[in-house]
């Protein structure tokens, strides 16, 4: 992590709880990237900045409720997820996942078989994104947590506020649905 972490989150949270805004600013700076990525992946689109600013303000006001039962990051991301849901509720739409343009692929300069492989891999990724867009919201949320934000099962429990059993079963069900959505595509390509 790029942050110069002379103090760990726990210590910063302690100080912030006692009104130390500089300590809280350090927490904000340290977690902005991950909060922003979460908001974008959950579909906040151009409102992601507003969402995370709101989430950081709310998190500060709720700090007394954070008892260290999960990582500060997971606790914060739960607030970000909640704010993103509020946004969807008021806005009535959610922005889907956007795949990085092929031009951004450093491997796209190569030629021959490798280039063909690259094209196929790109098509596969696009198919995966299309399939993800078709998943129900909760399925997508758990996929985002486990695979895109790389949260542990514990952190996912804290972030989504679901029981552990639900996180497990929802993950495997979401993966099964994804496989089902991808199968026809594979048949076509093969």
């Amino acid at each position: 992590m790029a942050r110069e972490a002379t103090l760990d989150d726990e210590e910063l949270v302690n100080r912030a709880r006692h009104g130390d805004l500089t300590a809280y600013a350090a927490l904000v700076a340290g977690h902005t990237a991950s909060a922003h990525r979460t908001a974008v992946l959950l579909g906040a689109g151009p409102d992601a900045e507003d969402v995370i600013q709101e989430a950081f303000v709310k998190a500060y006001r709720k700090l007394s409720r954070y008892r260290g039962e999960s990582s500060f990051r997971a606790w914060l991301l739960a607030i970000v997820a909640n704010e993103t849901r509020n946004l969807h509720r008021t806005r009535g739409r959610r922005d889907g996942l956007v795949l990085r343009a092929a031009a951004a692929d450093p491997r796209s300069e190569v030629a021959g078989d490798v280039a063909v492989d690259t094209v196929l891999a790109g098509e596969r990724r696009a198919a995966l994104v299309r399939a993800l867009r078709l998943l129900p919201v909760k399925d997508r949320e758990v996929i985002v947590c486990r695979f895109f934000l790389d949260l542990s099962e514990d952190e996912t429990v804290a972030m989504l506020g679901w029981p552990r059993g639900t996180v497990k079963s929802r993950t495997s069900r979401a993966l099964a649905k994804l496989r089902g959505l991808l199968d026809p595509a594979e048949v076509r390509c093969g």
Binding site: Y24, A25, V28, A29, T32, A33, A35, H36, R37, V40, L41, A48, E49, I52, Q53, F56, V57, Y60, L97, V98, L99, R100, A101, R124, R125, L128, V129, I143, F147, F148, D150, L175
Partner: peptide
């Protein structure tokens, strides 16, 4: 699952804004 983790790096997420001052 491996594909999904790999896909993670390909998803477009704009650079994070600096919200520290605003907060």
């Amino acid at each position: 699952e491996r594909e999904l983790r790999d896909l993670s790096g390909w998803l477009e997420t704009p650079d994070a804004p600096d919200v520290t001052a605003g907060v």
